[in-house]
Nucleic acid binder design. Structure first.
Lengths: 213, 213
DNA sequence: ACTATTGGATAGTGCCACTCTCCCATGGAA
DNA sequence: TTCCATGGGAGAGTGGCACTATCCAATAGT
C-alpha cells in the first residue's frame, strides 16, 4: 500500500499523513526504493488510532505522541507501559493555584479514595493527571456552591469501578502485549464520549419522564 | 462591586471580563453613572459558571452563549428551557459522512435505545448532539475493531441511567426555575470530568490489583 | 521519454480565546 | 480644582495549534 492508498482507506489526506509522519505519530513505511515506502495494515490501524485519540479524544498531537511512545517503550514492564499510556491521557482542567476550594476539594477526594480503599490512587496522588483534574473539578463545583462532598462523589466512583472491571476484562482477551496496550488506550479514550453521550440521553429521558407525570 | 473587584474575586482578568461582556456571556452591570456600572453577587456566580463551561467543559464561547440564552429564554416552557440548555451542550465528534460503520453503529444504538425503552431518545434521534456523538464514537470503535454492540453498550447505559436519576434529584431540590436550569447546566458539565477522572483512577486501581495477583 | 507520485522540508492558513492599546469621560484624592 | 487612576467601549493584535499548500528533486510507471 502506498501513501495514496493509505490516505484513501483511512479518509485522511496525504498532507495530514505526512504531517503525522513528521510528528512521529505514525511509523515510517517500509522503504521499498529510494523514494517510496510500503505501508501495511498495521499502519492503517495505527493511523485510525491516532485519529481517534486526536479527534474523538480531543488530545493534543504532542500528548498523543507521548502516549504512543510510552505504550511502545519495550524497556518498561507491562504494568508501566499500560500505566504510562493511560496515565498520560489528560482530559480536563489542571488546578491553576492553591485556593481554599482546592484545599478542601483535596480533602474530600482523599477521603473518597480512603473510603474506597483505592490504594494506588492514594499513593500516586498529585502525580496523576486524573487525580489533579478531579481536584480541580470538585473545586469548581465548590465555588459554584454545588454538592461535591464524599457522599455525592461515591456513586460516581462506584460506577467507575464497575466499568473498570468490565473494561479490563475486555482488554485481557487480547493475547499479545502490544494489542493489550493499544486496546487499553483505545478503549479508555473511545468509551469516554460513549459514556458521556449516554449520560446526556439518560438525563433527557429522565427529565422527560418526570415532567410528564 | 466594580469591574476591578469582580476581576479579583473571580480570578478572571478585566480584559477577559470585558470580552465576555462584549460576547454577551455576562449581563451588563447596573449602570451607576455614565461611565461606571455596579456588579452584584449574581454577576460573580454567572462569571464562574461561564468559566466552568469554557474551561472545565471545554465549550466554545459561541456555544456557551447559546446555552445560556436558551436557559434564560422566558418565552419557553421549563421543559424546553432545560432541554435546550442540556441539549445544546456538545462534547464529542460529529459524524462526518455516511460510512458503512456509521450505518451499523446507528443500528446498534437504536437497538440499545429500544431495549432500554428510552422513547425520547428514539424520537429525537439525529436532532440530538448526544445521539450523533454516540453514533460517531461507536463507529470509531467499529473501525478499530473493538467491541461496540448493544450488549457491550448496555452496562454503560444502565449506569448512565442511575446517575441521571440521582442528578435530577439534586436539581429538583432547587426552588426557583432559573436555579434549577443553572444547576442542570452546571452539574451536567462539571460532573463530566469528575466521572472521567474517577474512571481513570478506577482503571489504574483495577489494573494494579490484577497485576499484583 | 515523459507524466505522475513520493518523500522531504518550509512556510502559510484558519480558527479561536483571549489580550493589548487607545480613547475619552468620569471619579476620587490632594 | 487639578490630576491621576479607573471604567466602558471598540478594534487590532497575539499565540497556540492542527493542519494545508507549495516546492523540489528523485524516481516509478507507461
Amino acid at each position: 500500500m502506498r501513501l495514496a492508498e493509505l490516505s484513501e482507506r483511512s479518509g485522511v489526506s496525504t498532507a495530514t499523513i505526512k504531517y503525522y509522519l513528521r510528528e512521529r505519530l505514525l511509523q515510517q513505511g517500509e522503504r521499498i526504493t529510494a523514494t517510496q515506502s510500503e505501508y501495511g495494515e498495521e499502519h492503517l490501524r495505527r493511523l485510525r488510532l491516532v485519529r481517534a485519540l486526536i479527534q474523538v479524544g480531543r488530545m493534543p498531537v504532542a500528548t498523543a505522541r507521548e502516549v504512543l511512545e510510552a505504550a511502545e517503550d519495550e524497556s518498561l514492564s507491562e504494568h508501566m507501559r499500560m500505566g504510562a499510556a493511560i496515565f498520560g491521557l489528560p482530559h480536563g482542567p489542571e488546578p491553576a493555584e492553591e485556593t481554599p476550594e482546592t484545599v478542601r476539594a483535596r480533602q474530600h477526594v482523599d477521603a473518597l479514595l480512603d473510603r474506597l480503599d483505592w490504594s494506588y490512587g492514594r499513593e500516586i496522588g498529585d502525580a496523576s493527571p486524573a487525580y489533579r483534574t478531579l481536584i480541580e473539578s470538585v473545586a469548581s463545583l465548590a465555588r459554584l456552591g454545588y454538592p461535591h462532598d464524599t457522599d455525592h462523589l461515591l456513586p460516581y466512583a462506584r460506577l467507575a469501578s464497575q466499568l473498570a472491571v468490565e473494561e479490563l476484562d475486555v482488554i485481557e482477551k487480547y493475547s499479545t502485549l502490544s494489542e493489550r496496550i493499544e486496546a487499553a488506550v483505545a478503549l479508555t479514550v473511545l468509551y469516554e464520549p460513549v459514556l458521556l453521550s449516554l449520560r446526556r440521553l439518560a438525563q433527557t429521558e429522565e427529565s422527560g419522564r418526570r415532567i410528564k407525570e
